[in-house]
Amino acid sequence: MDDTPYLLDASHWDWSVTGSIPHLLLAHLGYTALSVLVGALIALPIGMLIGHTGRGAFLAINAGNAGRSLPTLGLLSLLVTLMSIGFLPVLIALVVLVVPPILTSTYAGLRSVDPSAVDAARGMGMSGSQVLLRVELPMALPVVFGGLRAGVLQVVSTATVAAYTGLSGLGRLLVDGLALNDYGRVVAGAVVVAALAIVLDLLLGLVQRRVVSPGISGRGLGRSRPARPVAGSPLDAEVL
């Protein structure tokens, strides 16, 4: 009997073998990427509109609370019952999961922008859309990215439910492992999902560092050059 752990068995990493970990990982990434993309396309515009106008805050807050309280597996079971087995019920369930954190973070980020900056932009003659896109949204990006990263982590961990509808993905390791009492496969699935979540969060963190201005994120404040003391000032006397 082969005692090699499932995760360390080279045959389970063979790309030429259907159902190997690379195939399941690629499918899982596909479910995650599509769900986050669709969810962002829905949540970002709504969150920006609510945050910019200040109207509909009740919708944003309650949508976030409702989304966090919905059981994804129960919702998926209901959708499968209504729509039959397939990818669409999984996509809808994951989108419902990812919309609330992006929506609420976008709203909260825009509402946290310094009103004086918005007033200054309007005083310069900027239109409402220019204020939103050039002032409010760039300043809100750290909070928006926080919601996006939270949504991605939730989807990565929850996309395993796709296996319950007969689809591929890393959930197959969990579902099939439990069905076969192969706990090495279950552990392998849990480890790969956790590792994938960590890697994606680190990558999003790098993207955030490149996209968000250092002045907004607080980076670079410690690297600012000290001002040169003016001759005759107390600071100049101390230096001398």
Results as ranks from 00 to 15, higher is better:
Val143Ala: 12
Ala159Thr: 06
Met124Val: 02
Leu37Asn: 07
Gly56Leu: 03
Met124Gly: 03
Leu137Asp: 01
Ala195Asp: 06
Ala40Met: 13
Ile198Lys: 14
Thr160Cys: 10
Gly109Ile: 07
Ala57His: 08
Gly74His: 04
Leu25Asn: 09
Leu49Tyr: 10
Gly74Asn: 03
Leu203Cys: 13
Ala60Asp: 04
His23Asn: 13
Ile102Val: 13
Ala60Met: 07
Arg225Ala: 15
Arg134Thr: 12
Met48Gly: 00
Ala93Arg: 05
Glu238Ser: 03
Gly54Gln: 11
Val152Ser: 00
Gln154Ala: 14
Ala66Asn: 01
Arg122Ala: 09
Arg55Ser: 12
Leu7Pro: 03
Pro229Gly: 10
Pro71Val: 09
Glu136Ile: 00
Leu137Ile: 13
Ile42Thr: 05
Val131Ile: 04
His28Ser: 05
Gly47Glu: 04
Asn181Thr: 08
Thr4Asp: 06
Met48Glu: 00
Leu34Arg: 02
Gly218Ala: 01
Leu204Ala: 03
Gln208Arg: 10
Ser233Ala: 07
Gly56Val: 04
Leu25Gly: 13
Leu91Phe: 13
Pro234Ser: 09
Thr104Ala: 11
Gly151Met: 00
Tyr183Ile: 09
Leu148Asn: 05
Glu136Pro: 02
Gly218Gln: 07
Val38Ile: 15
Val199Thr: 14
Met48Trp: 00
Pro229Ser: 12
Val98Asp: 13
Gln130Glu: 14
Gly218Val: 01
Gly215Asp: 10
Gly166His: 10
Val113Asp: 02
Ala150Gly: 07
Ser112Leu: 04
Ser116Ile: 05
Ser112Asp: 15
Gly189Glu: 11
Ser217Glu: 10
Val118Ile: 15
Ala150Thr: 14
Gly51Ala: 10
Asp176His: 03
Ala162Leu: 08
Leu91Tyr: 12
Leu103Lys: 04
Ile216Cys: 09
Tyr31Arg: 08
Arg172Ala: 09
Ser157Phe: 07
Asp9Gln: 13
